[in-house]
Design a protein around this nucleic acid. Structure first.
Length: 508
RNA sequence: GGCGCUAUCGUCUAACGGCUAGGACGUUGCCCUUUCAAGGCGAAAAUACGGGUUCGACUCCCGUUAGCGCCA
């Protein structure tokens, strides 16, 4: 009722929320929750509220708020409203606390932590549910007030009626909890320090949330929240509890399983499109065989009813595969731009602060432009699984002299004389190509016919282009695995191609 | 310990109560090929267990087991 526009909104409008706690980098599971809520809001033309559940004053940090915001921006997840900070909404919570107290739905409890612990142990040893005895439930408000005035410590408990709490979960169907097994639970340490379970319930109600889409781990909290909502006369939202994302050992995905934050995946070179598609498919699928989905397609086809009930293991191999799919689809020039930070960080290039299309190749001191990089990236596209791999895949394009092992030049049973012959033949052929004709196709046309006959020239049985092409590729890349020799030549240009070939020839 | 949730190839999953249980990643064989990828064509690989209900069960019901989650 205090909330500005609650009344003005139509009853029907879908309203969802994303309420992370800024107590760490944004977890992939948290991001997935944001995604599902975002998709649901979009497809229903609803409102999406961003709320920071920062009631934990010790662990909540501004830099984590920043990390969450950055991650969301990167993924392209946007909001209609917020961010709201729970730490700034204490007055609202205090008001509802007072109301519950006044109406007898909550009471002060003076039991000590130690006593409660003893009782809990006793109950558990007898195989009973560890619930509060209700010892302080009869303390009158006047007496409670007096004892607090005297400085006695007290918490606020919710008086839960004994009944079955039943609700329908969109993912799991009819659910039923016995509130006798919940007992009178603590909702606040005092009027100014309400607990998580209470404040998020109040916020959801006050903000007019119609659909609470959240993780399965908070499913056991739901009956308590419904009890609070009923006591306050709030409508009960529709609940949907999503399965958890699991580590390889089937426990809830956490840091000990490796990288878990969105930031880390960004750094490793995964595309936001990949993450969106991948996260959506952890627990959901369209029921068809289509597996590559853009966010727009997800908004079109998504449905809460199709969400899986069991938790899904986070499979990095599949993520790599998907990222490869997206990388191959990407326009090469855009991809080149995305690779720049990785090459810069590896110390291979130095971007020009004044010209985004230009950079310095550090090993040689030469200037190059984005066209050069674009060519490399276009050739590497089918090989890239993560953007960061561009460093190891393309370092030989940013080197002066390459570090070549002589043995690498040897194809099968080629002798040093054979290799020498092949390199000199290559130098001869390459020299004849006009500068203006320097394209991958022309280079190939100039060299391939010679490669066809070369094995015969050095008296090898059969036709094996490798005797000419392998030393060429090795001499140009210095690597066991690389792009093809014509592609490398194309990128390198005539002068450098000749230089590397003759450098290799001199080694023998 | 209590309460709750879950259970199909190694993994993600598909299958109005009616099929040889389908697809994808991964693994693997072959093709293409100068290497590595990418691509093409194949292969191996699953209904946790036990009872029902039914002409018929991956599917519905009940148990068992296991895993996970939550417990101020």
């Amino acid at each position: 009722m205090e909330e500005k526009d609650q009344k003005s909104r139509s009853e029907q409008e879908v309203c969802v929320r994303f309420p992370p706690s800024p107590t760490g980098l944004m977890h992939i599971g948290t991001a997935r929750l944001a995604l599902f809520n975002y998709i649901f809001a979009k497809q229903n033309n609803g409102r999406f509220i961003f709320r920071l559940d920062d009631t934990d004053k010790v662990r909540s940090k501004p830099e984590f708020v920043q990390d969450i915001t950055d991650g969301l921006n990167w993924l392209g997840i946007t909001f209609n409203d917020g961010p709201y900070y729970q730490s700034q909404r204490g007055a609202i919570y205090a008001e509802y606390l007072k109301r519950l107290l006044k109406e007898g739905n909550a009471y002060y409890c003076f039991c000590s932590r130690e006593d409660l612990e003893v009782q809990k142990q006793y109950q558990m040893s007898r195989g009973e549910a560890p619930i509060y005895s209700g010892k302080c439930s009869d303390v009158s408000p006047e007496e409670a007030e007096a004892r607090i005035q005297k400085g006695e410590r007290a918490v606020i408990r919710f008086r839960s009626s004994i009944k079955k709490v039943e609700f329908k979960d969109v993912v799991r169907g009819e659910l039923s909890f016995d509130s006798a097994l919940i007992g009178d639970f603590v909702i606040a340490k005092d009027l100014d320090n309400a607990l998580y379970n209470f404040v998020s319930t109040i916020d959801d109600s006050v903000m007019g949330i119609t659909h609470v889409i959240r993780g399965e781990d908070v499913l056991p909290n739901t009956p308590k929240q419904i009890l609070i909502q009923e006591a306050l006369g709030f409508p009960i939202p529709i609940y949907a509890h999503l399965p958890l994302i699991l580590g390889p050992d089937r426990s809830k995905l956490s840091k000990r399983h490796g990288a878990t934050s969105v930031t880390e995946y960004k750094k490793m070179g995964y595309l936001p499109e990949t993450m969106i598609n991948f996260m959506a498919f952890l627990g959901w699928n369209p029921g068809t065989e289509k597996e590559v989905f853009s966010i727009e397609e997800l908004i079109k086809d998504f449905s809460l009813e199709k969400i899986q009930k069991g938790g899904a293991i986070f499979n990095g191999q599949r993520l790599d595969y998907l990222n490869g799919v997206y990388i191959r689809q990407y326009p090469a020039d855009a991809l080149a731009g995305l690779c720049v930070p990785y090459l810069a960080q590896a110390g291979l290039i130095e971007p020009d602060p004044d010209d985004p299309n230009s950079f310095l190749i550090k090993a040689t001191g030469e200037r190059a432009n984005l066209e050069y990089l674009k060519k490399i990236v276009a050739y590497q596209q089918p090989r890239l699984k993560r953007l960061s791999e561009i460093i190891d895949l393309a370092d030989y394009f940013f080197a002066g002299k390459i570090n070549l092992e002589v043995d690498l030049l040897k194809w099968k049973d080629a002798t040093p004389q054979d290799i020498k012959l092949s390199l000199d033949e290559l130098i001869n052929l390459v020299s004849k190509i006009e500068e203006g004709e320097w394209t991958k196709e022309k280079i190939e046309q100039a060299i391939l016919p010679a490669a066809e006959t070369f094995s015969k020239r050095i008296n090898k049985a059969g036709l094996d282009r490798g005797y000419l092409l392998w030393p060429m590729r090795a001499a140009l890349s210095g690597k066991k695995m690389s792009l093809g020799p014509f592609e490398i030549s194309d990128v390198l240009g005539k002068e450098k191609t000749l230089l590397r070939l003759s450098d290799a020839s001199k080694l023998i």
